[in-house]
Design a protein around this nucleic acid. Structure first.
Lengths: 118, 118
DNA sequence: CCGCTCCTTCGACGCCCGTCGTAGTATGAC
DNA sequence: GTCATACTACGACGGGCGTCGAAGGAGCGG
């Protein structure tokens, strides 16, 4: 009712308290998602969804971004039609001390190895 | 094959170099396996396969122990017909700095929460 | 209004993993 | 030797997740 036909583009990033260890570890268990983490950590600035180098289709990529966001690993926000991604400030560290950082570090190393073999 | 009918009961625990990040994270993404980790960390001593409190059948438990061992997280050795399990000394720390310990800590906390709700 | 770009949603599909029960092997006690 | 115990190996099954393509909404620029 009186709902606008068009919904504005917003993203709701979950609060830290809503994230479970299960979610976090599942999110990180997928190589594509780890690649996203590595690219974000290496770049040091926000990256749009389309600008990632990923071996999957756009729709699959969207899925992975959702998983990462719901796990509290990345933060997303719209900027026009473009969706920007950044590693979330490590407030997750309060719930899982040291875990996020250790994971990010491992992801970066893993990614470096891959690119260095090429 | 001239393979002896009876193979003595030995376990080969993989070397650290053979473990991949993928293996480690997959291993840790399962709640049953995290429970094993938590119980080992809390106990502080070796635990036999049969002495764990797990919500799955014995054969399934065996499967999980294999995954944990191949991921370099636990060490197994026979003692008669009993197979003992221990958390592996953190030589994995060289490959994935801080990761194992952060995971173990999170597993313990997670387990504590569960038991404290009861 | 039109078209273009980005990203999302939906349904479908295939495969892998966790699960089980059964049957089997190794060890130790009697 | 016989029996009991502890764990393993194997085959089967079901559900979930990653994957895709097609179709569609949101914003931007003419």
């Amino acid at each position: 009712m009186a709902r606008p036909k068009t919904t504005p583009r917003t993203v709701d990033n979950p609060s830290v308290a809503e994230v479970t260890l299960q979610q976090l570890l599942e999110a990180v268990a997928d190589p594509v998602r780890r690649s996203v983490i590595a690219q974000l950590a290496t770049a040091g600035h926000d990256i749009s969804c389309g600008a990632f180098d990923l071996p999957v289709s756009r729709s699959t990529a969207t899925h992975h971004f959702n998983v990462l966001r719901e796990a509290g690993i990345i933060h997303q926000h719209y900027q026009g039609t473009t969706k920007m991604n950044s590693l979330r400030p490590d407030d997750l560290d309060a719930r899982f001390p040291g875990l996020i950082q250790a994971i990010i570090d491992s992801c970066v190393r893993e990614n470096d190895q891959v690119t260095e073999v090429r």
